[in-house]
Design a protein around this nucleic acid. Structure first.
Lengths: 209, 209
DNA sequence: CGTCTTCCTGACCATTTGGTCAAACAACAA
DNA sequence: TTGTTGTTTGACCAAATGGTCAGGAAGACG
């Protein structure tokens, strides 16, 4: 019997579970949970459907495994925000890392977006337990910077939302962005997006004014 | 036979089609196209499933009717951006109207978000035909303002993306926003969001600096 | 009233889909 | 080789789901 619920042991388990999860990420992020079928995932993974269900007890289990595994990665940039660093540069580089993730991991971004859009049925608990405390902590840091006059006085929570919104937009609304952008830039919107976001935030974060 | 494909004629048709579309908006926006079932929509509309399919030939027809009907409303704020107005105030009030729409029409926002997230299979044509030209036009206006020194030099397309991202975030990621925000504000995030967005944009739009 | 059209529904159907299972097959140790 | 454990699949199933249809109910109209 496969080691369900625990980490894979054998080579084959290692290889297959990761193939399945990669395929599942493809399919879930492109179609949402209900829009994805086990057959699609199986085909994308190059395995048979019963074989997937040998490694994961259900479609939902694949989904939850993905979400759970991704959260750490997803929050890493915010975790890295250093209270000892320079305020403006810290926030700027947070936004930069986040944008980079939108570029490098668009599937993950869309997976989360799909989930949150539909009310986060499988995520709300985790959000309360992990996301909220982390944001509280970093919002306090930001509020401190503002209070010390090292940062423009901005609402810390909404500032964080702004960063999320702006950066994830390029992954989640990719089709729209590319449709609207003039041909040249639509090939890769990220360089310009990066410059734009940096310009914007620099202006609004600088304490003087 | 019902007047399929054209506007409703009789009272009953009027009443039922709008009840169906309203219910469909509820269900599609909350579950995505594939996640929504005709039964759910029927129940929400207070009609029987065959009755829905008397007014609309298919589930997909309901979806497309919604999308088509919504695009105008959705783009209205951008259309209203007045080339003759004061640059900063025009953009600010565009963002304000857009945020208001996120508050008043979150279902519509989520419907579009769902659609675009999944590659806009039923929308890409319309985006090319209507959204792109409009954005091109308004981006040119903004570029003109910047060139005249009446607005900070910002990338006009990415500026528009910023407004979309920031405002729609509050509708599309509602659950996340409310989970993260301190209790008091989570009751209604919009007043603070509005202030935050205005502060931000004012700083970055003003030409001096 | 009678007739014609619109509106509505219970019963039904075909397909899709998540999931099961017995049995075949591979890996490997003794 | 033989037994044991881990891996794979074809065939199958029950439920869900989009959609159909024949016929009944309700208006509209002369």
């Amino acid at each position: 019997m496969a080691a369900k619920g625990t980490r894979p042991r054998t080579r084959i388990q290692q290889k297959n579970t990761s193939a399945i999860l990669d395929a599942a990420l493809d399919v879930f992020s492109a179609n949402g949970f209900r829009g994805a079928t086990v057959d699609q995932i199986a085909k994308a993974a190059g395995l048979s459907k019963p074989n997937l269900l040998y490694y994961f007890p259900s479609k939902e289990a694949m989904h939850q495994t993905l979400l759970a595994g991704l959260l750490d990665t997803w929050l890493a940039p915010l975790r890295a925000l250093d209270p000892e660093g320079d305020p403006v540069e810290e926030i700027l580089s947070y936004a930069g890392r986040k944008l980079e993730m939108s570029r490098e991991m668009p599937r993950e971004s869309r997976l989360f977006a799909n989930e949150v859009l539909q009310g986060a049925p499988n995520l709300e608990g985790v959000l309360k337990a992990h996301l909220k405390p982390l944001v509280d902590e970093k919002a306090a840091v930001i509020a401190g910077w503002s209070a010390d006059g090292r940062l423009a006085p901005l609402h810390p929570y909404h500032l964080i939302f702004s960063i999320w919104a702006l950066t994830q937009h390029y992954a989640d609304f990719d089709v729209q962005v590319r449709t609207v952008l003039p041909e040249i830039e639509a090939g890769d919107p990220f360089p310009e997006a990066s410059r734009h976001i940096e310009t914007m935030f620099r202006k609004m974060l600088e304490p003087g004014g």
